[in-house]
Amino acid sequence: MTRLSYDRYCEEILTQTDLLREALRHGDLTAKTPTCPDWTLAQLALHVSSAQRGVEKIVRDRVKEFTVPTDETAGTAGAEAFDADSLDAHLAEGARQLVETLREAGPETEVWTFGAEQTAAFWARRMTLETVMHRADVFAAVGAEYTVDAVLAADCLDEWLEIVTSPQAIAYRPAYGELAGPGRTLHLHATDTDPELNAEWFIDARRTPVTWRNTHEKAAVAVRGPMTAVLRVMYRRSSVDDGGVEVLGDREVLDAWLERASF
Protein backbone atom coordinates (compact mmCIF):
# COMPACT_ATOMS: atom_id res chain seq x y z
CA MET A 1 0.00 0.00 0.00
CA THR A 2 1.33 3.46 -0.89
CA ARG A 3 2.33 5.66 2.03
CA LEU A 4 1.17 9.21 2.45
CA SER A 5 3.43 12.05 1.41
CA TYR A 6 5.78 13.61 3.94
CA ASP A 7 3.83 16.87 3.75
CA ARG A 8 0.57 15.02 4.41
CA TYR A 9 2.03 13.38 7.51
CA CYS A 10 3.16 16.78 8.80
CA GLU A 11 -0.33 18.19 8.23
CA GLU A 12 -1.95 15.19 9.90
CA ILE A 13 0.16 15.59 13.04
CA LEU A 14 -1.43 19.00 13.48
CA THR A 15 -4.92 17.86 12.46
CA GLN A 16 -4.97 14.76 14.67
CA THR A 17 -3.58 16.70 17.63
CA ASP A 18 -6.26 19.35 17.19
CA LEU A 19 -8.98 16.66 17.15
CA LEU A 20 -7.50 15.12 20.29
CA ARG A 21 -7.38 18.54 21.97
CA GLU A 22 -11.02 19.23 21.12
CA ALA A 23 -12.11 15.91 22.65
CA LEU A 24 -10.11 16.56 25.80
CA ARG A 25 -12.14 19.71 26.43
CA HIS A 26 -15.15 17.47 27.05
CA GLY A 27 -13.49 15.07 29.48
CA ASP A 28 -12.45 14.82 33.11
CA LEU A 29 -8.65 15.01 33.04
CA THR A 30 -8.42 13.03 36.30
CA ALA A 31 -10.53 10.12 35.02
CA LYS A 32 -8.92 6.84 34.01
CA THR A 33 -8.81 6.08 30.30
CA PRO A 34 -10.71 2.81 29.60
CA THR A 35 -8.41 1.66 26.78
CA CYS A 36 -5.22 2.72 28.63
CA PRO A 37 -6.34 2.00 32.20
CA ASP A 38 -3.00 2.82 33.80
CA TRP A 39 -3.33 6.45 32.71
CA THR A 40 -5.67 9.31 33.41
CA LEU A 41 -6.76 11.47 30.50
CA ALA A 42 -4.19 14.06 31.53
CA GLN A 43 -1.43 11.43 31.61
CA LEU A 44 -2.45 10.10 28.20
CA ALA A 45 -2.38 13.60 26.72
CA LEU A 46 0.99 14.28 28.29
CA HIS A 47 2.29 10.98 26.89
CA VAL A 48 1.30 12.08 23.38
CA SER A 49 2.95 15.46 23.78
CA SER A 50 6.06 13.95 25.36
CA ALA A 51 6.41 11.55 22.44
CA GLN A 52 6.07 14.39 19.95
CA ARG A 53 8.55 16.55 21.83
CA GLY A 54 11.02 13.68 22.18
CA VAL A 55 10.94 13.05 18.43
CA GLU A 56 11.30 16.76 17.75
CA LYS A 57 14.54 16.73 19.75
CA ILE A 58 15.82 13.64 17.91
CA VAL A 59 15.26 15.27 14.55
CA ARG A 60 16.41 18.75 15.60
CA ASP A 61 19.65 17.44 17.11
CA ARG A 62 20.17 14.88 14.32
CA VAL A 63 20.51 12.14 16.94
CA LYS A 64 22.10 9.02 15.46
CA GLU A 65 22.17 6.74 18.51
CA PHE A 66 19.57 6.25 21.19
CA THR A 67 18.73 3.97 24.10
CA VAL A 68 15.08 2.94 24.21
CA PRO A 69 13.61 3.80 27.63
CA THR A 70 12.38 0.85 29.66
CA ASP A 71 9.94 2.85 31.82
CA GLU A 72 6.49 2.23 30.32
CA THR A 73 5.13 5.40 31.99
CA ALA A 74 7.86 7.68 30.66
CA GLY A 75 6.48 11.05 29.69
CA THR A 76 3.42 11.02 31.98
CA ALA A 77 4.95 12.33 35.21
CA GLY A 78 3.67 15.69 36.35
CA ALA A 79 0.32 15.48 34.58
CA GLU A 80 -1.49 16.57 37.74
CA ALA A 81 0.17 19.99 37.47
CA PHE A 82 -1.75 20.80 34.28
CA ASP A 83 -5.23 22.25 34.11
CA ALA A 84 -7.33 22.08 30.97
CA ASP A 85 -6.00 25.31 29.45
CA SER A 86 -2.33 24.67 30.15
CA LEU A 87 -2.54 21.08 28.90
CA ASP A 88 -4.25 22.25 25.72
CA ALA A 89 -1.52 24.83 25.14
CA HIS A 90 1.18 22.24 25.85
CA LEU A 91 -0.26 19.86 23.26
CA ALA A 92 -0.62 22.59 20.64
CA GLU A 93 2.91 23.87 21.13
CA GLY A 94 4.49 20.42 21.07
CA ALA A 95 2.79 19.50 17.81
CA ARG A 96 3.68 22.85 16.24
CA GLN A 97 7.35 22.53 17.20
CA LEU A 98 7.54 18.97 15.89
CA VAL A 99 6.06 19.86 12.52
CA GLU A 100 8.29 22.90 12.12
CA THR A 101 11.36 20.77 12.82
CA LEU A 102 10.25 17.97 10.49
CA ARG A 103 9.60 20.43 7.68
CA GLU A 104 12.96 22.11 8.19
CA ALA A 105 14.76 18.75 8.19
CA GLY A 106 13.00 17.15 5.23
CA PRO A 107 12.21 13.44 4.82
CA GLU A 108 15.70 12.21 3.95
CA THR A 109 17.52 13.58 7.00
CA GLU A 110 19.26 10.71 8.76
CA VAL A 111 18.31 10.23 12.42
CA TRP A 112 17.95 7.38 14.87
CA THR A 113 14.68 5.42 14.80
CA PHE A 114 13.64 2.09 16.27
CA GLY A 115 13.00 0.69 12.78
CA ALA A 116 15.01 -0.18 9.72
CA GLU A 117 14.29 3.20 8.15
CA GLN A 118 16.66 5.70 9.78
CA THR A 119 15.24 8.99 8.50
CA ALA A 120 12.96 11.82 9.55
CA ALA A 121 10.29 10.33 7.27
CA PHE A 122 9.95 7.42 9.70
CA TRP A 123 9.14 9.82 12.53
CA ALA A 124 6.68 11.92 10.51
CA ARG A 125 4.67 8.78 9.87
CA ARG A 126 5.13 7.35 13.37
CA MET A 127 3.98 10.52 15.14
CA THR A 128 0.97 10.86 12.85
CA LEU A 129 -0.19 7.34 13.57
CA GLU A 130 0.71 7.53 17.26
CA THR A 131 -1.62 10.49 17.55
CA VAL A 132 -4.34 8.82 15.45
CA MET A 133 -4.45 5.83 17.78
CA HIS A 134 -4.27 7.74 21.05
CA ARG A 135 -7.09 9.90 19.74
CA ALA A 136 -9.12 6.68 19.84
CA ASP A 137 -8.31 6.39 23.56
CA VAL A 138 -9.41 9.95 24.25
CA PHE A 139 -12.60 9.62 22.22
CA ALA A 140 -13.49 6.41 24.06
CA ALA A 141 -12.95 8.12 27.40
CA VAL A 142 -15.23 11.08 26.58
CA GLY A 143 -17.86 9.02 24.74
CA ALA A 144 -17.25 10.54 21.32
CA GLU A 145 -17.67 8.66 18.05
CA TYR A 146 -14.25 7.79 16.65
CA THR A 147 -13.66 7.62 12.93
CA VAL A 148 -10.48 7.79 10.86
CA ASP A 149 -9.91 8.59 7.22
CA ALA A 150 -9.66 5.22 5.45
CA VAL A 151 -6.22 5.93 3.99
CA LEU A 152 -4.85 6.85 7.41
CA ALA A 153 -6.49 3.86 9.06
CA ALA A 154 -5.06 1.48 6.47
CA ASP A 155 -1.63 3.04 6.96
CA CYS A 156 -2.02 2.44 10.70
CA LEU A 157 -2.55 -1.26 10.09
CA ASP A 158 0.36 -1.42 7.66
CA GLU A 159 2.69 0.23 10.16
CA TRP A 160 1.45 -1.90 13.04
CA LEU A 161 2.19 -5.07 11.07
CA GLU A 162 5.60 -3.73 10.07
CA ILE A 163 6.45 -3.03 13.71
CA VAL A 164 5.21 -6.21 15.42
CA THR A 165 6.97 -8.40 12.83
CA SER A 166 10.27 -6.48 12.84
CA PRO A 167 13.45 -7.93 14.42
CA GLN A 168 14.00 -4.66 16.30
CA ALA A 169 10.58 -4.83 17.96
CA ILE A 170 10.86 -8.56 18.70
CA ALA A 171 14.16 -7.93 20.50
CA TYR A 172 12.48 -5.24 22.62
CA ARG A 173 9.18 -7.08 23.22
CA PRO A 174 9.70 -10.88 23.17
CA ALA A 175 5.94 -11.58 22.97
CA TYR A 176 6.11 -10.58 19.31
CA GLY A 177 8.42 -13.53 18.79
CA GLU A 178 5.57 -15.81 19.93
CA LEU A 179 3.11 -14.68 17.25
CA ALA A 180 3.93 -17.65 15.02
CA GLY A 181 2.36 -21.07 15.52
CA PRO A 182 0.92 -24.00 13.54
CA GLY A 183 -2.03 -23.01 11.38
CA ARG A 184 -1.95 -19.34 12.31
CA THR A 185 -3.09 -17.34 9.32
CA LEU A 186 -5.33 -14.27 9.48
CA HIS A 187 -7.22 -12.27 6.89
CA LEU A 188 -8.31 -8.69 7.65
CA HIS A 189 -10.86 -7.13 5.33
CA ALA A 190 -12.17 -3.56 5.47
CA THR A 191 -15.61 -3.67 3.87
CA ASP A 192 -16.31 0.06 3.43
CA THR A 193 -13.29 1.33 1.48
CA ASP A 194 -12.59 2.11 -2.16
CA PRO A 195 -11.38 -1.09 -3.89
CA GLU A 196 -8.36 0.83 -5.16
CA LEU A 197 -7.15 1.19 -1.58
CA ASN A 198 -6.76 -2.61 -1.38
CA ALA A 199 -7.61 -2.57 2.33
CA GLU A 200 -7.13 -6.29 2.90
CA TRP A 201 -4.31 -8.03 4.72
CA PHE A 202 -3.18 -11.66 4.79
CA ILE A 203 -0.96 -12.45 7.77
CA ASP A 204 1.05 -15.66 7.59
CA ALA A 205 2.07 -16.54 11.13
CA ARG A 206 2.59 -20.26 10.60
CA ARG A 207 6.31 -19.86 11.09
CA THR A 208 8.96 -17.31 11.98
CA PRO A 209 9.46 -14.75 10.54
CA VAL A 210 5.83 -13.73 10.34
CA THR A 211 5.01 -12.17 6.97
CA TRP A 212 2.05 -10.24 5.59
CA ARG A 213 0.78 -8.78 2.36
CA ASN A 214 -2.12 -6.70 1.06
CA THR A 215 -4.27 -9.29 -0.64
CA HIS A 216 -7.48 -11.27 -0.46
CA GLU A 217 -6.53 -14.79 0.58
CA LYS A 218 -8.20 -17.59 2.55
CA ALA A 219 -6.97 -17.85 6.14
CA ALA A 220 -7.72 -19.78 9.31
CA VAL A 221 -9.63 -16.77 10.63
CA ALA A 222 -11.01 -13.66 8.94
CA VAL A 223 -11.92 -10.32 10.52
CA ARG A 224 -14.35 -8.26 8.43
CA GLY A 225 -15.92 -4.88 9.07
CA PRO A 226 -15.63 -1.14 8.51
CA MET A 227 -12.05 0.12 8.29
CA THR A 228 -12.15 1.97 11.61
CA ALA A 229 -13.70 -1.02 13.38
CA VAL A 230 -11.05 -3.43 12.07
CA LEU A 231 -8.35 -0.97 13.13
CA ARG A 232 -9.71 -0.60 16.65
CA VAL A 233 -10.09 -4.35 17.18
CA MET A 234 -6.62 -5.19 15.89
CA TYR A 235 -5.11 -2.42 18.02
CA ARG A 236 -7.10 -3.76 20.99
CA ARG A 237 -9.06 -0.53 21.36
CA SER A 238 -12.33 -2.48 21.03
CA SER A 239 -13.20 -6.01 22.03
CA VAL A 240 -13.69 -8.55 19.27
CA ASP A 241 -17.27 -9.19 20.37
CA ASP A 242 -18.33 -5.55 20.72
CA GLY A 243 -16.13 -3.90 18.11
CA GLY A 244 -18.49 -4.03 15.15
CA VAL A 245 -16.59 -6.70 13.20
CA GLU A 246 -17.49 -10.15 11.92
CA VAL A 247 -15.15 -13.04 12.76
CA LEU A 248 -15.18 -16.08 10.48
CA GLY A 249 -13.19 -19.22 11.20
CA ASP A 250 -10.90 -20.19 14.05
CA ARG A 251 -11.42 -17.64 16.83
CA GLU A 252 -8.54 -19.14 18.83
CA VAL A 253 -6.07 -18.06 16.13
CA LEU A 254 -7.31 -14.47 16.42
CA ASP A 255 -7.24 -14.55 20.22
CA ALA A 256 -3.68 -15.92 20.22
CA TRP A 257 -2.58 -13.12 17.91
CA LEU A 258 -4.28 -10.33 19.87
CA GLU A 259 -2.86 -11.64 23.15
CA ARG A 260 0.69 -11.20 21.86
CA ALA A 261 0.45 -8.32 19.42
CA SER A 262 -0.31 -5.41 21.72
CA PHE A 263 1.22 -2.13 20.63
Rank of each mutant, 00 (worst) to 15 (best):
T2Y: 08
T2F: 04
R3D: 10
Y6G: 02
E12T: 14
L14M: 13
T15K: 11
Q16F: 07
A23I: 11
A23M: 01
A23S: 14
R25I: 09
G27E: 02
T30G: 13
T35R: 12
C36G: 08
W39H: 09
L41M: 12
Q43H: 08
A45Q: 09
A45Y: 05
A45E: 02
L46W: 02
Q52N: 08
R53P: 01
E56W: 10
I58C: 03
V59L: 03
E65H: 14
F66Q: 10
T70D: 15
A74R: 15
T76R: 11
D83G: 05
A84N: 11
A84S: 12
A89Q: 15
A89E: 13
H90I: 15
A95L: 05
R96Q: 12
R96L: 07
Q97P: 06
T101I: 04
R103I: 02
E108S: 13
E108R: 15
E110G: 10
W112D: 02
Q118T: 01
Q118W: 11
T119E: 12
F122Y: 11
F122N: 07
R125Y: 07
R125E: 01
M127K: 05
L129T: 02
R135E: 06
A141I: 01
A144M: 01
T147D: 13
V148P: 00
D149M: 12
V151P: 00
A153C: 03
A153Q: 00
A153D: 00
A154R: 05
A154M: 09
D155W: 09
L157K: 04
E159F: 08
L161V: 00
E162T: 10
I163D: 00
S166W: 06
G177I: 01
E178L: 13
R184Q: 08
H189T: 07
T193A: 11
D194M: 14
P195K: 14
A199F: 09
A199H: 03
I203C: 00
T208M: 15
P209L: 11
P209A: 12
V210T: 04
R213I: 11
N214A: 14
T215W: 01
E217N: 14
V221S: 09
R224W: 00
T228D: 06
A229M: 03
L231T: 03
V233F: 01
V240E: 01
V245I: 05
E246G: 04
G249A: 08
D255A: 14
